[in-house]
Amino acid sequence: MSLSEKLLQPSVRPAVAKDLAATIDSEVSGKKGLSGAAIKTAYAGAKKKVDVVSALNDNLDQIVAIFDPYWDAFGGQGDFGAYLKGRGDEVSADILKIADARANSTSRDQIAKVYGTFRGKAADMIKDALPAIGATLQKHAA
């Protein structure tokens, strides 16, 4: 059974979206320094406009599909987060393709503008978050 088949089941999907939102919240709250403060401010503003859990749930098919080939290659043995981290450049590029397309198609100019501001740092932020994202996905795939 693919990762998508496991995580997109109606009985599992809401918990995956909720836990991924918590993972994002945790990753953002852990950012330090001036850029961390800017990220926290931007994220707080975005959360006023968008329900993160609902947005993740609405886009979960596309999100989880990114991880299907990695899950298949991983084979379910060990720590999926560590596996993803070891392929950070490739995984972050795959995620950013989807994020870029979403940002380019949004009718919310403010969200696109904020995304554009942080796009240059996005790959590093994603790579930093891959162990936590992988752990969250693996938790629900087990």
Rank of each mutant, 00 (worst) to 15 (best):
T41K: 13
N57G: 12
A37F: 09
A22H: 09
T41F: 08
D19C: 04
A15S: 15
E27T: 11
D61I: 12
L8E: 03
A46V: 14
L20H: 05
L34G: 15
Q9C: 03
P10V: 04
A17Q: 06
L34T: 12
L8A: 02
I63V: 04
A15T: 05
I24M: 14
L34K: 14
V50H: 08
A38R: 01
K6Y: 03
A44M: 12
S11I: 07
A38C: 07
A44L: 08
D19G: 04
K18E: 11
L60M: 07
V28H: 01
T41C: 08
S11T: 13
P10I: 06
A46I: 12
A17F: 10
A21K: 03
K49L: 09
A55S: 15
D61W: 10
V16D: 01
K47A: 02
V12W: 01
D19I: 06
D51S: 14
K6H: 13
S26F: 10
V50F: 11
N57Y: 13
D19R: 01
Q62S: 15
S35C: 14
P14G: 08
A15N: 11
V50M: 13
K31L: 13
L7I: 01
D61K: 10
A46N: 06
K18S: 10
A22K: 07
V28W: 00
I39N: 03
I39K: 00
K47G: 03
R13L: 03
R13M: 05
Q9F: 01
A46H: 12
E27K: 02
A55V: 10
K47V: 02
D51Y: 03
A46F: 11
Y43S: 14
V50L: 09
V28T: 02
A42F: 10
D61M: 10
D51N: 13
A42T: 10
T41Q: 11
K31Q: 13
I63Y: 01
T23K: 05
L34Q: 12
G33F: 11
K49H: 09
A17E: 05
P10G: 05
D51G: 04
L8Q: 01
N59M: 14
D51F: 04
S11W: 11
A38W: 03
A21N: 08
S35H: 15
I24P: 05
D25L: 05
R13Q: 06
D25C: 07
S11Q: 15
Q9I: 06
N59P: 02
S29I: 07
V12Y: 00
L60F: 02
S54G: 15
G45T: 05
T41R: 11
S54I: 14
G33P: 00
A42H: 01
L56P: 00
G33S: 08
L7Y: 00
Q62N: 14
Y43Q: 05
K40F: 05
A22T: 13
A17I: 08
E5Q: 12
D25E: 07
G30Q: 08
L60W: 00
S11G: 15
T23W: 05
G33W: 11
G30E: 12
L8I: 03
P14D: 06
N59F: 14
I24D: 11
V16G: 04
D61R: 09
D58Q: 13
A15H: 15
A22D: 07
K18V: 13
N59D: 06
A42W: 02
K48T: 13
S35P: 15
Q9T: 07
D51R: 10
K40M: 04
A21I: 13
L7G: 03
I24W: 10
V53F: 02
A17N: 05
V50T: 08
A46C: 11
K18P: 06
N57V: 08
A37N: 15
E5S: 10
